[in-house]
Design a binder for these strands. Structure first.
Lengths: 103, 103
DNA sequence: TATATTTTTGCCAAAAATTGTCAAGAAAAT
DNA sequence: ATTTTCTTGACAATTTTTGGCAAAAATATA
C-alpha cells in the first residue's frame, strides 16, 4: 500500500466509499463544507481534531492520518528545494539527538 | 563533522571566531541586533537573504546553512511527535514522487 | 570598582499567514 | 429540468511572525 496519498485524498476516498456527502462530513467535523472541500483538495490544512473525528467515524487508523498530515506539510515545503534529501537526513539526526536530550 | 548544530549556533560560532560583535553582523544583515541575538539562540527564524549574506561574509557554504535552516524547522516541529520517524520516511517518498510529477 | 561595550529581554505595533464563513456558480446526479 | 453536491472567490476575524525600541543584564576593560 502506498503512503504517497495525501491526507486530503485519503479523507475523500474514505468519505466517498461511504457515499457520504461533503456536507455531512463537514457537519461532523464542525466546519464549513467549503473548508472541507479545500482540505480534500489540499488547499487548506486539516488539524488534529479533524483527523481524530475522521478516524473514529470511518474506523481509520489515526496514526496513519497523522503521518499523512505531517508529511504532507513537510513535503510541500521541500518540493521546490534542491537540497531536500540532505535536509531530511539532517532533520532526522536532529530529531533523534534532541529527543535524547529531553529525556 | 556533526550536522546537529543549529543554524543559530553556527552563525554565532562563525561570528565569534571573527570577534565580530552582534551589532556589526546585525548591521550587515540589516536587522536589529536584538533580532540577531534571538536568531543565534533559535528564538527567531533566519531567512534566505540572511544566510546568503552570512555565507558571503564569512566564506561559509551557503548550502550547509540552508540545510540547517530547513532542518531546524522540521526537527522543531517533530521533536514532540512520537511518529517522527515514519513522518520523515513518508515525507521523503512524497518529495521524490511529486518532484518526478513536476518534470 | 567604575566605565564602556556587548548581549539579552520584554514589549509593542505592523505585516503576513491562517482560519472560518458566506454566497454564487459549476458540476453531477436523479 | 430540477435537485443536490461540490467548488470557487471574496471577505473579515484571528493567530502567528516579524522588526524594532529601550531598558536590564552580562561581559569586558581600564
Amino acid at each position: 500500500m502506498s503512503n504517497i496519498e495525501t491526507l486530503g485524498a485519503t479523507i475523500r476516498r474514505l468519505r466517498e466509499a461511504r457515499e457520504m456527502p461533503l456536507r455531512k462530513l463537514a457537519a461532523a467535523l464542525d466546519i464549513d463544507q467549503s473548508t472541507l472541500s479545500k482540505i480534500e483538495r489540499n488547499e487548506r490544512n486539516a488539524n488534529d481534531a479533524m483527523i481524530k473525528t475522521v478516524a473514529e467515524l470511518f474506523g481509520a487508523d489515526y496514526k496513519e492520518l497523522k503521518i499523512k498530515l505531517l508529511s504532507d506539510k513537510i513535503a510541500y515545503d521541500l518540493i521546490n528545494e534542491a537540497l531536500s534529501d540532505e535536509v531530511l537526513r539532517v532533520a532526522e539526526e536532529k530529531v533523534e539527538y534532541f529527543k535524547k536530550l529531553k529525556k
